[in-house]
Write a protein that binds this DNA or RNA. Sequence first.
DNA 1: GTCAGTTGTTCTATACGCTAGACAACTAAC
DNA 2: GTTAGTTGTCTAGCGTATAGAACAACTGAC
Lengths: 259, 259
Amino acid sequence: MDASLEPLKARRLALLLRERIASGEIAPGSRLASEPALALEHGVSRVTVRRALDSLAAEGLIDRRVGSGTFVREPEAPAPIVADFANMLTHLVEMGRRTGVRLISFAYAQPPETVVQALGLKPGERTQRSVRVRLIDGHPFSYLTTHVPERIGLTYSEADLASVPLLTLLERSGTVVERANQTISATLASPDVAEALGLEIGSPLLSLTRIVFGPDGRGVEHLHALYRPDRYAFQLELERAGNASERRWSPAPARGTGS
Amino acid sequence: MDASLEPLKARRLALLLRERIASGEIAPGSRLASEPALALEHGVSRVTVRRALDSLAAEGLIDRRVGSGTFVREPEAPAPIVADFANMLTHLVEMGRRTGVRLISFAYAQPPETVVQALGLKPGERTQRSVRVRLIDGHPFSYLTTHVPERIGLTYSEADLASVPLLTLLERSGTVVERANQTISATLASPDVAEALGLEIGSPLLSLTRIVFGPDGRGVEHLHALYRPDRYAFQLELERAGNASERRWSPAPARGTGS
DNA sequence: GTCAGTTGTTCTATACGCTAGACAACTAAC
DNA sequence: GTTAGTTGTCTAGCGTATAGAACAACTGAC
């Protein structure tokens, strides 16, 4: 399946509209601008607009009615997962949603330079690299790449990794985990990630990099996670704190997730 | 400037290589596969490979040397800004980097449906909508769209907004700010945002939505921020906490920003 | 110097993304 | 019914991305 072939302008327009629909900027049930109007607005031909709408229709996002217009379909919404800053998903289980993991690859090899630096490895030291895809109710939502120093990785098996959280495996094997540094950013889906997450190449992704350290300050785990933003987002409750001269935000316990 | 025109296959290949370089999979200083080799490997013509490399070279990511090959350039890194979760930028000032703001638009109008719901506005209630671009050392890095209920917006002027942080304006005018809900996600750059931030259409962006509430639980400010991921990222230090039966991460005071 | 391998340049020919326009079929409002 | 506006379908043609190939200029190893 060489699906990834889609004309350039049509693709871009489709991505744009998909975003606007997903973000609620174009309300469900409402009518989209007409095809000629969209063509004019975006400076493309109507044929191109139609190609973009075709792909949205194929995904079931819109509903086209001859004579009356194109409408945003009500999402049968597997509502996006919301996680707090510590990346806790425990409440998911309580909410009765089933999560799963697919192990994509598992091997020991030379890690890329960035990982060597982040973990403070010795030159030439090898790592266990695993790639996993996490599912929610059967739908993939995250693409995890982890690197663990070889000596630590050997304390558990490939099968363990497919069922038990990595951090649990580490602590169970006696590795002491003390602190971590976490960075959040954004990227585009590369071909392999796109396929694993069921996305088009070039779709936006939330990116999280977490470097976990042991008590001696040496790196224990390097985690790189890519999330589908339509199925996963970080949420945080903030409280206004500080005295009058220096007001600031500070994290607060979560309230209701809001509908 | 219709820069955003880039061929399909070339674009995809460029995207792929850019990712591999950024992730360190192809180490800085090392040689890339030769153009004929890349062409063969990816099943495209050499012309296409060259177009992809052209765009990488234009970004300064690679260095082409006739007769010897193409090399990954050491990043001269205009180091990305790092902010913690409360979105504090105060340390930036200490670091001697100058920030600025450009006011793009300012008007009172009917807000979109999502804002109405988020702030709990009455139907028909108007808001002050402002769009600002924030700069670091003269380079744009974020695109801010804020909505404030009209009655509150009237307590300050357009000029105020271009120089004083919005939250300060609110509190100065007697509005009490208590808590906020913050969501982080990812999107693509639409044409207007792309131009304002100096990006191509379809570039990935970090997205932050913050809804600020007053003591009565009514919405006071709706903020939507889009960040260039190459110039801005969220960073958080975590500590391993909790007892043996339920270990978890909790936020910790920041250490050195790392290099 | 020689030689294999590299990037730079130019050419031709094909494939196809994209535009522009016209017309049909349908819908909803009047 | 009439009419304006919508999506569906088709055609013709332009511009350009892509493939393929040849040659020049340059580099580094030997």
